[in-house]
Design a protein around this nucleic acid. Structure first.
Length: 757
DNA sequence: TACAGAGTAAAA
DNA sequence: TTTACTCTGTAG
């Protein structure tokens, strides 16, 4: 297990001449008749292992299985397992990957020959092939969809140039020593033993609650170093490009210390600019090729989307070929073909950018967990907060909790002070007009003497949920416990899940009969704050223009959740404005998500610095922030979800499509025993598909806008957690039936969708 | 009834 | 793009 099978055989440069190998290429030049004759005549099957099992790049569900082809003698050498090929399929020439070579085919009919081998580079390793198959099955998708996510597009010139890659010499790799000191892990009772386990080549799996502060990239780097010291590879997935830059820098420092070489050279050096922004190196060669003997090659690479195709492929190849042993990257890196995987790390697993927006919509947490499981690797999943999903990993016994020592934590955690909706407003007139409570105003003014103050402002545009007008308990559907909402077409509240109109709703908590929207329309602007603090520079970071970091000088830094810059020496204070807006989102995860965003912002202040949160201190997430105790909150939340039949305690699938298509799929799919179908309901107009409400990071515009929302509906299917596999299988089969029938309009199937409104 | 040629569906 | 099969019209 966990081996690096196919990739072990490096094809010589000769075998993979740029442009690949073409069967019967002589026929090209000759005339029509001659071409046909020479092709047919020239092609004879290879002497050994003449059958190639190929996964073809055809996105139809019912064709999601390998097809057999004959390997002609002239392609015998380059047709290695894992290579890209081109084959004739139903007449068309299509791309594919060669999975394996075998002696005989099961197929009854006559086999076609491989048309050509694109290149002999074995880009699909056995580990990734098996992982992709498992991910496809888990998410009711096809293998080729997952492979499209897992394997970057080929760049022929990069592939050809890389023969002389800067592979770290064995003694450098062997020279990685285990960390002598646990460093930031000292603050965790189980930290040292976690590191030690990795260094001994074992595979500890932990859900991590990071200590607030700037140390987490260093902690990650130490874990990676321990893994490398045991001769295994490591994979780190973070949410955003700037987190990649920070972990990259920490890795560079840690690994150069580990090998005793000078820092800053090699592949990683090109990964990020000096200011931490990811930047493509000017000119082509920088990264791999220029690293000579005096500039020791790096042991790791950074993989992000903004590198551009060539550089991205160059680095990805370095990983594939084992030239580097560790990877840090954003979501797409979760499939990086790291050799001898010994550790996977996922930072801030609650961030919604970890959910892949392309079919079959896999989530990095799930993929990395599957991967660690398959490869027998360790895992480190977490962030400042604790998700219900990660809590589930602990409760099922898959992972252990790795949390800071409470006494140490108490010394450094921010001092959180809540100010409710009815808090006394500031006496200052400008602050008053910004509706800034007195406490927030005073805290900011005092802190501005020492340094920057972070101001978190929720973005507008959240879908409001309904709550009881009297006791403010969330209003839920009596039939399915879905979220109630209102829109312009219904006068009465309706359920977003099953569509039932709640005519005579009554609060189960207090018996009240009135509902009210929980969102308050108030918004702060940077200008308003600027007026309240004359003479203080105001900087903003948000959707249009994300700041990576700010210096130590006094400034108000206004940011939307997820776009908070890191302050070089920490913020002197933070104000979390309009907390009730985050809490009031019409999302199942609103509480958990609000806490995550608050903690991520509050973790950026100096030890024990003040943080003012504008929200009602009686609410659970607010309490959790006050005590810096996301664990208890997540455990309680998970318990409630279990009772109500919500994910992640239950499994859900969301099906979106035209009413007719949905009906067809639900008929074709033999849903498992006990499956409950909610809806279908019309897709709310203007609901931006997958990554809605994302934090500051510039999410890709959802490709779901092909047809107007009016004629699309959504159904939810709910099963017990154990039935997830059966549900995915049934939906896949149903999709297969429809695709075989050439059904016109597709149904989008999402297992465990993030946005369960 | 036999069979050529057109049309269609699969898909190695 | 190829192949295998069905459909359809026509000659025997």
């Amino acid at each position: 297990m966990g081996g690096v099978p196919a990739a072990d055989v490096r094809p010589g440069a000769a075998a993979s001449a740029p442009g690949g190998a073409r069967a019967g290429s002589t026929g090209r030049a000759t005339g029509k008749a001659g071409k046909k004759a020479s092709r047919k005549g020239a092609r004879t099957p290879s002497a050994t292992r003449k059958v190639a099992r190929v996964v073809v790049d055809v996105p139809l569900s019912h064709l999601d299985r390998p097809f057999d082809y004959l390997v002609p003698t002239d392609l015998d050498e380059p047709a290695v397992p894992g290579c890209r090929v081109r084959v004739r399929f139903a007449g068309q020439l299509v791309d594919g990957f060669l999975l394996e070579r075998v002696d005989e085919s099961e197929h009854e009919g006559r086999l076609s020959f491989l048309e050509r081998v694109i290149s002999a580079e074995p880009v699909l390793t056995r580990e990734v092939a098996a992982l992709a198959r498992e991910v496809a099955d888990r998410y009711a998708g096809t293998l080729c969809d997952v492979l499209r996510l897992a394997i970057p597009p080929r760049h022929a010139r990069v592939e050809a140039e890389a023969g002389q890659a800067a592979r770290p010499s064995p003694d450098i790799v062997a020279g990685v020593g285990a960390p002598a000191e646990p460093g930031p892990w000292q603050a965790y009772p189980a930290g040292a033993s976690f590191l030690a386990a990795l260094a001994e080549g074992r595979s500890p799996r932990a859900v991590w609650n990071a200590m607030p502060g700037p140390d987490w990239p260093a902690a990650v780097a130490l874990a990676v170093r321990a893994t490398l010291a045991a001769g295994r590879g490591a994979l780190v997935v973070v949410a955003a490009g700037r987190d990649v830059a920070r972990v990259d820098a920490a890795l560079r420092a840690e690994l150069s210390a580990a090998t005793g070489t000078a820092a800053g050279a090699g592949v990683a050096a090109a990964a990020t600019g000096r200011d931490g922004t990811a930047a493509s190196p000017p000119g082509e060669p920088a990264a791999v090729t220029t690293a000579g003997p005096e500039a020791p090659p790096a042991l790791h690479v950074a993989l992000t989307a903004e590198l551009g195709p060539a550089e991205r492929y160059r680095r990805w190849l370095a990983v594939l070929r084992g030239d580097v042993r560790a990877v840090v990257g954003t979501r797409a890196a979760m499939f990086a073909p790291v050799r001898d995987l010994g550790l996977v790390v996922l930072w801030d697993d609650g961030d919604d950018v970890h959910a892949e927006p392309h079919a079959p919509y896999p989530h990095a947490r799930e993929v990395l967990a599957l991967r660690a499981h398959r490869a027998g690797a360790g895992a480190l999943i977490g962030g400042f907060t604790r998700t219900t999903d990660a809590t589930q990993l602990i409760e099922t016994g898959w992972a252990h909790a790795l949390a800071p020592d409470r006494a140490t934590l108490r010394q450094v955690m921010p001092r959180i002070r809540p100010a409710g909706e009815d808090a006394e407003l500031a006496r200052d007139e400008a602050a008053r007009s910004a509706r800034l409570p007195h406490l927030a105003f005073r805290t900011a003014r005092q802190a501005l003497v020492d340094g920057p103050v972070l101001v978190q402002v929720p973005r507008r545009g959240y879908v409001p949920a309904l709550a009881c007008g009297r006791c403010r308990a969330p209003a839920r559907c009596e039939a399915c416990q879905g979220t109630l909402s209102v829109n312009s077409s219904h006068a009465a509240p309706y359920c977003r899940w099953c569509g039932r109109i709640a005519g005579r709703w009554q609060c189960p908590e207090c018996g009240g009969g009135q509902v009210r929207a929980t969102m308050v329309g108030a918004r702060r602007t940077a200008e308003e704050l600027g007026r309240a603090f004359p003479g203080v520079s105001v900087r903003t970071s948000g959707r249009d223009g994300v700041l990576d970091r700010v210096g130590g000088e006094a400034a108000l830094v206004v940011a939307t959740p997820g776009a908070e810059p890191v302050a070089d020496d920490g913020y002197a204070a933070a104000l979390l404005l309009d907390g009730w807006v985050l809490l009031g989102r019409a999302d199942l995860r609103a509480g958990e998500e609000a806490l995550r965003r608050w903690m991520n912002a509050a973790a950026l202040v100096r030890p024990a610095a003040p943080v003012v949160l504008l929200a009602d201190s009686a609410l659970g997430p607010v309490q959790a922030l006050l005590r810096w105790d996301p664990v208890t909150h997540a455990e309680r939340e998970l318990g409630e979800r279990r009772e109500l039949g919500f994910p992640p305690a239950a499994r859900m699938a969301s099906l979106t499509g035209t009413p007719a298509a949905l009906r067809e799929l639900l008929e074709a799919a033999l849903l498992p025993e006990g499956a409950q179908v909610l809806g279908p309901v019309p897709v709310p107009a203007g609901t931006p598909a997958p990554a809605a409400g994302g934090g500051g990071t510039a999410g890709a515009r959802a490709p779901g806008s092909r047809r107007p929302a009016e004629d699309r509906e959504r159904a939810l299917v709910r099963v017990e957690r154990a039935g997830g596999h059966a549900l995915a299988h049934a939906l896949k089969a149903g999709q297969g039936v429809r695709s075989a029938r050439k059904a016109a309009d597709p149904v989008r199937v999402q297992i465990d969708p993030l946005e369960l409104i």
